[in-house]
Design a protein around this nucleic acid. Structure first.
Lengths: 122, 122
DNA sequence: CTGAATCCGATACGATACTG
DNA sequence: CAGTATCGTATCGGATTCAG
């Protein structure tokens, strides 16, 4: 796996070009809520209500649209059970779990360093 | 270093709480341009003009504001030389380089998988 | 060359209300 | 319970112009 910018560029010369697919994925995954939802789901499959509580502060609208985007990207899978009351569960796909392999260590670093970074006002 | 959500939660119970410092850092680093600028700088210190060309598609306004935010976060350092014409260089701080240790592998994954993900329309 | 300042449209986001 | 619909606001982000 690539670990330096040169390595990445060697295999994917257009990583920085405008209109490159990476831009789209970055916008989806790195958006305000994408990572937080994926993080919550890395805990395991969850129902809508639980997910909403776990991603504290997210509105229903953003949870819905974030999930839809991630599902379309093949990172999240939605399973609806034909019951009353309705039950819907969300989980990571294989690709999603693979992605989290890289995101989790990053989040660990952020959790460690965020307090020091935010010490001074934004 | 933490590698599972449980590990992160154990050390930082409030990672998901609203108003947590991690949210701020995520917004700065994961914004539309934050990662791309950091990626470009991981290539080494660069002048404003070079940076602008390397982060293809960024406007002057966004480059300026992104750099200012990252500098305030202690991830980027700005060096101005008192010359005419003016010369200003931007580079990563130690903390910034440390962060890139985690971001680069993630970007490698994204570069690998983005084409497959974007295959279907957004 | 390196920005800052301004204007303006797009859209991300949140709050609320409503439905199967 | 699991969403959708609608609305209003705030912020993002681009284009352009100006300045040191």
């Amino acid at each position: 796996m690539s670990v330096s910018l040169a390595d990445i560029r060697a295999e994917h010369p257009e990583v920085f070009s405008d209109g490159c697919p990476t831009r789209v994925v970055l916008d989806h995954v790195m958006g305000k809520w994408g990572i937080l939802v994926l993080m919550a789901l890395s805990d395991g499959t969850q129902r809508w209500g639980v997910l909403r509580r776990n991603v504290s502060g997210i509105s229903e609208k953003m949870l819905a649209s974030t999930l839809k985007t991630l599902e379309a990207d093949g990172l999240v899978v939605r399973t609806a059970y034909p019951e009353v009351p309705p039950r819907v569960e969300y989980g990571l796909t294989d690709r999603g779990r693979d992605l989290m392999t890289y995101v989790l260590p990053l989040m660990g670093w952020v959790a460690e360093n965020a307090p020091a970074i935010v010490a001074r006002p934004e």
